[in-house]
Computed example of a mutant assay.
Amino acid sequence: MDFTNKTVLVTGGSRGIGKATAIAFAQKGAKVGINFRSNVKEAQKTLAELQGEGHQIFQKDISQKENCEELIDDFVKAFGQIDILVNNAGISIFHEIDKVDFDHWTHAWEETFRTNLFAVANMSYWASQSMIKTGGGRIVNVSSRGSFRGEPTKPAYGASKAALNAMSQSLAKKLAPYNIYIGVVAPGFTETEMAAVTLTPAERENLLRESPFQRMAQPEEVAHAILFLASEGAEYTSGTIIDVNGASYLRQ
């Protein structure tokens, strides 16, 4: 896969899957824009790890809809056009229906959908407007195996990712005539910095048992699938959802 002369915007690109994706695109010759919400130090650290020159960071909270148009505008001003958008930014809030009060419940749903679905819809809208003008592009959305198997402790997360899948496939149909191709990756639990901090030993052990590989996904493995969907020659996979969960959840 060669992305020389391609421009890529990765939301939530300073850590975890987003960071691995930004690094992978840069290694393949792309000019990369890293979007992040608040941690400037982490974003600058990731920027310094990117191979090649001309990469930039963009601080915007894309859960606020006005920031999505501004982010695309800023990116296009910096790079000339947007060839590839990776909608990776997402949040996850625990809200077990039998354990939380109603305020916590509604807050979890509103915040989760604002970031995991509405921001992706808004980013896709503004990116596609630009891509239509330049003759096409690619959008890759990061979903989750939770969109298929359910998330009993975080139902809003599972629901937001299921909605993202449906939206992605709708856009794949609508945008194909404009040479804009949509792909989705649905990772299982991934070995990120956040996982290392938040998982208890017992939780980690349970997760390891879910996959016959007896391990979690590495961020680089998810990034590999993202790069495939964004690559030249993958056009006819538009609308595809690729599972990256180590056979921990198999769907028909």
Rank of each mutant, 00 (worst) to 15 (best):
N35G: 07
T200C: 04
T4G: 03
H107M: 12
S168I: 08
S211D: 01
P187L: 14
E221S: 07
D83F: 01
A176D: 00
T240Q: 10
R138L: 02
A108S: 10
A223H: 04
A48T: 04
E221H: 04
K99H: 03
G12A: 12
Q51T: 14
Y249G: 03
R15N: 11
H95A: 12
A166G: 09
A156D: 02
I139A: 02
S211A: 10
D243K: 14
T106R: 11
V222S: 06
L199Q: 15
D83L: 01
L227V: 12
V100C: 01
Q214G: 07
V10W: 05
D243L: 15
L117D: 00
K174F: 03
D101N: 10
A30H: 08
R37C: 09
Y157E: 02
R209V: 00
E210K: 15
Q27M: 14
V8T: 04
R149G: 05
L175H: 07
A186K: 09
R114W: 03
V100G: 03
E220S: 10
E110Y: 11
V222K: 08
A225N: 06
N88Y: 08
I242F: 13
K31A: 04
I84R: 10
K19F: 03
I180C: 04
T11L: 10
F3E: 02
F36Q: 04
V32D: 04
H55M: 01
K173L: 10
A217E: 12
P212H: 05
K6C: 01
A48Y: 00
R204Y: 13
A159H: 07
V40M: 07
A163P: 02
G183M: 07
A225T: 08
I132T: 09
G29H: 11
F25E: 00
V185R: 11
V140M: 06
S170Y: 13
L227C: 11
F79N: 13
F118P: 02
L229R: 11
G136L: 02
F25I: 02
Q59C: 02
I91R: 14
A108W: 08
G12S: 09
F75D: 00
A24Q: 05
L164S: 03
K173C: 08
E53T: 15
T237N: 13
A202G: 03
Q64E: 12
F213A: 13
H55I: 01
G12Y: 13
G54R: 10
G54E: 02
E42M: 15
G136P: 12
T106A: 05
W105M: 14
M167H: 06
T21K: 05
E193I: 12
L250S: 14
N141R: 09
A26D: 00
E53Q: 15
C68G: 09
A217V: 12
L164T: 04
E49Q: 11
P187V: 03
N179Q: 13
G90T: 07
A166K: 13
A78V: 09
G52Y: 02
E210N: 11
E235W: 14
H107Q: 13
V40S: 13
V40F: 10
D61F: 00
